[in-house]
Simulated scan of single mutants.
Amino acid sequence: MWLEQMLAAAGRSGAFYEGKRRAGQYFLRYELPRTEAQFALLESLDRTTLDMPADCI
């Protein structure tokens, strides 16, 4: 979504478009790298929470 926003703002001027570009840069720099560990955990197919007996919750 942010990549699309940045592409739409490309070549346009004004505070609105500059805000789109900067928000996209923030997401790509700070938020996107954090997903790597989450994807690795999902890829491992760990069943810890799924195998929890109902009476232990």
Rank of each mutant, 00 (worst) to 15 (best):
S13E: 15
L32M: 11
T49G: 13
E31T: 07
Y17M: 07
A37T: 10
M6G: 03
A8C: 07
R34K: 14
Q38A: 12
A23T: 09
G11Q: 04
Q5Y: 09
Y17A: 10
C56R: 15
E18Q: 15
E31H: 06
D51H: 03
L42D: 04
L50I: 06
D51L: 12
R34P: 00
Y26Q: 07
R21K: 14
R29N: 11
M52E: 14
R22G: 01
R12Y: 04
R29P: 00
Q5D: 09
S13R: 14
I57W: 11
T49P: 00
D46T: 04
E4I: 06
W2I: 06
W2A: 02
A37H: 04
L28C: 05
R21L: 14
T48P: 00
G14W: 06
M52D: 08
R12F: 03
A9H: 01
S44P: 02
P33D: 08
Y26E: 08
L3S: 06
R29W: 08
T35E: 10
E43V: 02
Y26W: 14
A40P: 01
R47D: 11
L32K: 09
A8G: 03
T35P: 01
T48I: 03
A9Q: 02
P33K: 08
G24C: 01
L50H: 10
I57E: 11
G19K: 12
E31D: 07
Q25F: 05
M52C: 11
A40R: 15
A10W: 10
D55I: 10
L45E: 12
A54D: 09
G19C: 06
Q38D: 10
A54I: 15
A37Q: 08
F16T: 12
A8P: 00
A23C: 08
R21Q: 07
A10E: 11
T49E: 14
G24I: 01
L50Y: 14
A9N: 03
M52P: 00
P33E: 05
T49F: 15
C56H: 15
L3P: 00
E18I: 00
A15L: 15
Q25R: 09
Y17C: 08
L28S: 03
A9E: 01
G19Q: 13
A10L: 08
L50R: 11
L45W: 04
R47L: 14
Q38H: 07
L50V: 08
Q25K: 09
R29I: 04
G11I: 02
E43D: 15
